[in-house]
């Protein structure tokens, strides 16, 4: 028995190795080699641009930071309710505005509902541009144009949401059943009626789910817009950091943490209700 067992296993191993041809094996090794050297190259690039003295100091700095954050200055919290309200306003109105723009965009971008190939490319371009640029960058641009304030934040959130909602929604539209759409067209319905009866009811649950999910993300994003002057709790955060008032920073963090948890809970509940 002990003699046969290893014999058997080598046979199995031989059979397995045949799955990879030598040529493929070499390619796989080459890919790994290339990947690892690329990673090391990147690492060197970063390491060259780093002051390692600071890094060695990091644990002490971290401990120092935490000691200054504790205890949080609880009395500061009552000044934060208005900024928090602003943050939620930015997220909510921004999401509403964003989905209002994303909705037609998605119908123009979906292969089965677009009126023309060129319009489809344009709509896809809008979606990709909106997705590529972070809401904080949009906020930076808008603050230089509209001046600091909530409005810039709302529009920044809206512009970023177009891409997210638009992409997921147009994918949902492309996945609908075609026969009900055909049936509505066969009754002599106009194009818009085909959309509202044949397509819309099919994508409505997806649309609601995507929108509420984006709202949840937007709550998180809008907490930092204040760093570039676009309103919300980020303004207070920025002020507290600039004055090195870390005990205020920690209370802001606690508030953000709680708000995001609540919004995540609401979003999960609502999404479950729609499925």
């Amino acid at each position: 028995m002990p003699v046969r067992y290893p014999d058997h296993s080598t046979n199995l191993a031989d059979a397995r190795w045949k799955l990879h041809t030598t040529r493929k094996q070499i390619l796989i090794w080459l890919a790994w080699l290339l990947g690892i050297s690329l990673f090391l190259l990147c690492w060197k690039q970063i390491s060259d641009n780093t002051m390692w003295v600071f890094v060695e100091d990091a644990p002490r700095q971290g401990a120092d930071l935490i000691s200054r954050m504790l205890p949080p200055e609880w009395s500061y919290a009552h000044l934060l309710w208005k900024p928090l309200w602003d943050t939620i306003t930015i997220a909510t109105l921004g999401t509403l505005l964003g989905i209002a723009m994303a909705f037609p965009c998605a119908f123009l971008a979906a292969r089965n509902t677009t009126p023309h190939g060129l319009i489809r490319s344009a709509a896809l371009m809008v979606i990709v541009s909106s997705r590529s640029i972070n809401s904080l960058i949009w906020a930076m641009l808008l603050v230089t144009i509209l001046g600091p304030g909530i409005l810039a934040g709302i529009i920044a959130i809206a512009l970023r949401s177009i891409g997210f909602v638009g992409k997921l929604l147009y994918e949902a539209i492309e996945e609908i059943h075609p026969t009900p759409v055909e049936a509505i067209a066969a009754t002599g319905a106009s194009r818009m009626q085909v959309m509202s009866y044949g397509v819309l009811p099919q994508v409505m649950p997806a649309f609601a789910g995507i929108s509420i999910y984006r709202w949840d993300i937007n709550i998180r994003e809008s907490t930092v817009l204040g760093l570039v002057g676009a309103g919300g709790i980020g303004l207070q955060l920025n002020a507290a950091i600039n004055t090195l008032a870390w005990d205020k920073v920690s209370i802001i963090f606690i508030l953000i943490f709680a708000t995001v948890l609540v919004s995540e809970y609401i979003s999960a509940k609502v999404r479950k209700a729609f499925i």
């Binding site: 009866y197 044949g198 649950p205």
Partner: peptide, 27 residues
């Protein structure tokens, strides 16, 4: 059958009238 699953039976039947009516009325 090609019905609109998420609409009610009545709405599905009424969709047969879409060719005779305007968008907003049907919407």
């Amino acid at each position: 059958y090609a019905l609109i699953d998420r609409l009610t039976v009545m709405e599905n039947v009424l969709s047969g009238y879409l060719g005779y009516t305007g968008f907003w009325r049907s919407f």
